[in-house]
């Protein structure tokens, strides 16, 4: 009887074939990581399908100025804010416009008459909202263009939604058009209806009126005027100014013991019931009741 050679038998058991799974698994992982790294370093494959927010900073500035140019023609603040918001600025959209005007004004954009006109339009747009940048100081002091001016009306100040200007335009000190304010030509008037007013209890947001303005498809609409009245006082604010809360959002801080009426001037009738705050409980904590009001386009 021939006994099998033990070494040959062992070799046969460990016959590896042509493939090593551990090596394959590790190289697969390394290959995957390399492939992903290449795509991140190279950027997107299809470059001709970008969204406005994907523009690099200098191009975004030009795009913002184009939005301001269009605003000079249409005067539709809601549309303008929507387009500026589409650039996904880190700050308020009109502050982003001021930054764009400042950056372009500092980089030779004012070398041509058309650049001066474009930046004047941008400055007029954000100054009307009480905002300022450096472009006002960079612009030539006297207007030399003969372009048709957008509608201006100092008497209409009270009617135009300028949410709490923080400081006057810098050009105030330079005379000229200091007392004039841009009044956008109103777009086709939209009408809204208050569909819901519900109270809620949130210790993080006490005594707040949260307002959402939606179109008939349920999409948020920025730039819509909302009015809150109490006693003989009133305040007007705009939807969409808190960019991080979405285009539909606006809010107002209530005080205890005051009744508030809310409406959208010229666009929605006042909510039938007045809103007031009072004590409420969430968990074991006592706080002040808040309200959530939704206006929907009709």
């Amino acid at each position: 009887m021939i006994r099998p050679d033990p070494r040959r038998d062992e070799t046969r058991k460990r016959a590896p074939g042509y493939f090593s799974y551990p090596v394959f698994a590790w190289s697969l992982i390394i290959g995957l990581a390399l492939g992903l790294a290449v795509t991140r370093m190279h950027g997107p494959l299809q470059r001709s399908n970008a969204e406005p927010w994907q523009l690099r900073a200098d191009e975004r500035h030009h795009f913002a100025i184009a939005i301001a140019l269009e605003h000079q023609h249409r005067g539709d603040m809601g549309r303008t804010l929507n387009k500026l918001i589409a650039l996904r600025p880190a700050q308020h959209p009109l502050d982003a416009l001021a930054e764009a005007a400042c950056a372009l004004g500092s980089s030779g954009y004012l070398g041509s008459d058309s650049g001066i006109k474009a930046l004047r339009g941008a400055v007029a747009l954000y100054s009307a909202d009480g905002r300022s940048g450096c472009a006002e100081q960079l612009l030539p002091l006297r207007a030399t263009d003969s372009a048709p001016k957008p509608a201006v009306d100092s008497a209409a100040d009270a009617g135009f939604a300028t949410p709490l200007p923080t400081k006057p335009p810098l050009r105030d000190s330079q005379g000229g058009a200091s007392s004039r304010r841009l009044v956008p030509t109103p777009a086709a008037q939209r009408s809204f209806e208050a569909r819901a007013a519900r109270s809620f209890c949130d210790a993080a947001n006490p005594a707040l009126i949260e307002v959402h303005v939606l179109d008939y498809l349920g999409r948020g609409i920025p730039g819509q005027r909302i009015r809150v009245r109490w006693g003989d006082q009133a305040d007007i604010f705009l939807s969409g100014l808190k960019v991080d809360r979405g285009p539909s959002y606006a809010d107002f801080q209530m005080e205890e013991g005051v009744d508030y009426a809310i409406d959208m001037p010229g666009a929605a009738d006042p909510l039938s019931a007045s809103l007031s705050t009072g004590a409420c409980y969430t968990g074991n904590r006592s706080t002040l009741k808040s309200w959530r009001v939704t206006f929907v386009e009709t």
Binding site: G43, P44, R47, S48, N49, A50, W53, Q54, L55, R56, E59, H62, F63
Partner: peptide, 8 residues
């Protein structure tokens, strides 16, 4: 990507 041009 945030490095696109208007032409993209």
């Amino acid at each position: 990507n945030r490095n696109s041009a208007i032409s993209d």
